[in-house]
Amino acid sequence: MAEASKRRARSTSFRGREYSKASVWLGRLAVFVLLTGLWELLSGRAFNSFWLSKPSLIADRIVQMLGDGDLWYHMSATLQEAVVGLAIGMVGGTLLGIGLAFSGIFERWIYPFMMALYSLPRVSLAPLFIVWFGIGQSSKILMVVAMVIFVAFYNAFEGMRNIDKDLMDMMSTYKAKWTHKLRWVVLPSITVWILTSVRLNIGMALIGSVIAELVGSNRGLGYYITYSSNMLDTTGIFTGLVLIMLIAVALEQLVLLLERLLLRYR
């Protein structure tokens, strides 16, 4: 009876259910096989494979690119821009958020302008950055920074506002210096928020780097996609998209690993 009520309590709590690792991964595999299988089967039968290509063609292309070194040549460029830009944007935005939360009335002056800038469609800045920095990697990195810095700022700022006031008071009663408060309370409190913003920003960073590459470059997955498009090579376009997805998934897994390490106490 106790067993039964325990089971019921578990299944009614929102998202509280535990699933075995095997059932999760098998399910994911099944979804993947089903979708790619449908794509493979329908392409060339239900519609012309020229428009949507085919998983097998994409796989062939990836193998071929691996062989002639094109894969790493383009992937590394995009990866570098995204990661460097993400790092700069995250650090900059987070420091800005922490600083502004501590800045008293200054925060009230600056905040509306931050939000105004945030509402700009920042991808439209790509041409400007290319005018400034040329078609090399710096214009791409700047684009990525512009994409990620706002989410980083906003999350750090909100995280600061959500710090448990009792913990800060507690530190004050022990006569803690601000360096102590920063290390023992502030940074651990906003770690959750920073990790969330890193995860959201992985996608943003890739959008930033690829868009900037689309606008003007001679290297990178964005460049490879425009190049393929000019050649009416849909397989090339899809290959580029698949590779971007792979980068995103790999980076996300890294962040999840970091999360597990840093949030062990939960």
Binding site: D166, D169, M170, T173, Y174, H180, W184, P188, T191
Partner: peptide, 28 residues
């Protein structure tokens, strides 16, 4: 100086272990 407060809700640091929490005032 030399005033110690015990809060209603404990005010323990959730990311620190028990011993690290107790050490906190000594570390400061």
């Amino acid at each position: 100086d030399r005033v110690g407060m015990v809060f209603q809700n404990d005010a323990l640091l959730p990311w620190k272990t028990v011993v690290q929490n107790v050490r906190l005032p000594l570390a400061i």
